[in-house]
Amino acid sequence: MLAFLFKRIALLAFTMLAVSLLVFLAFEFTPGQVARKVLGPFATQDQVDRLTEELGLNRPVIERYFDWLTNTLQGDLGFSTLYKQPVNDIIWDRLGNTLLLAGVAFAVIVPLSIILGIAAGMKEGSILDRSISVSSIVTTSVPEFASGVFLATIFVIWLGILPGTAPLDAGAGWPIWQQLILPVMVMVLYDLGYVVRMVRASMVEVMTRPYIRTAILKGLSFRDVILKHALRNAMIAPFTVILLQINYLITGVVVVEAVFAYPGFGRMLLEAALSQDVATVEAAALFAVFVSVSTQIAGDLGYMMLNPRIRFS
């Protein structure tokens, strides 16, 4: 178990290293471009060359990569050309806001998807199953920006009970919690269906297993069969999927934050990308990958804890 954890962490380090190299190479391989990006299109070639020299950008790529890596590891994430301040000064607030949004969404998605998935999967082909399955297929098929449009039409324009933007600014006339409702709803709608289907598929599979038959023919009530015998087995496979949703949430966050003008990490990444703010994009990309890889490890660990076959071998 400990050896496994160690191995996974070593793998995490390796992946992060490879990712950082990839990201670095993608943006900074050609030195002239960096200076050009910083100075903008109207600078003279002479100015570009001088800045290139000044920033040490004409040194070998590997050398520059290690400098950059060392700086990053020491917490120096570079200077944002878009926000005109160190990346460090903006990224943490943005992350905090996003954590709030994603956290609330996740807290809604997990219990809801488990309940719906189990309810659908316990009797395959029943009316309950068919309706839950088809609705989850439909909700996962609506792109976030489209559901944003639909929900805004209903709740903002038609009913007028929710704000159409979420700048997290109480001065805008809406309390923060009401501003959060629509963004969270959009994320839940898109993501919920997917997890529900995973849980359902796993539950359906478990219900066909001979040990469920054993439990029924032992004289257990249907409730006990589900709660004591099916549930834990049915949660093993979707566990990793649920944690992988954090990965999808990062993607969702970018779109949702763009839709609702939410001052989060995702919008920062997008704005930086649109204005070629390399340092910010690099930092954000590394951060996103770090979150996604760590959740994978957590998923693997949880899978081991849930599954005695792996735990005791």
């Binding site: 001979p210 040990y211 439990a215 257990l220 087995n233 093993i236 599954n307």
Partner: peptide
């Protein structure tokens, strides 16, 4: 079931709950 009348199955591995 399980009281007055009980069953023994083919493939015992899959008939027992793994967790």
């Amino acid at each position: 079931r399980g009281g007055r009348m009980a069953m023994v199955y083919q493939d015992p591995m899959s008939s027992l709950n793994p967790v």
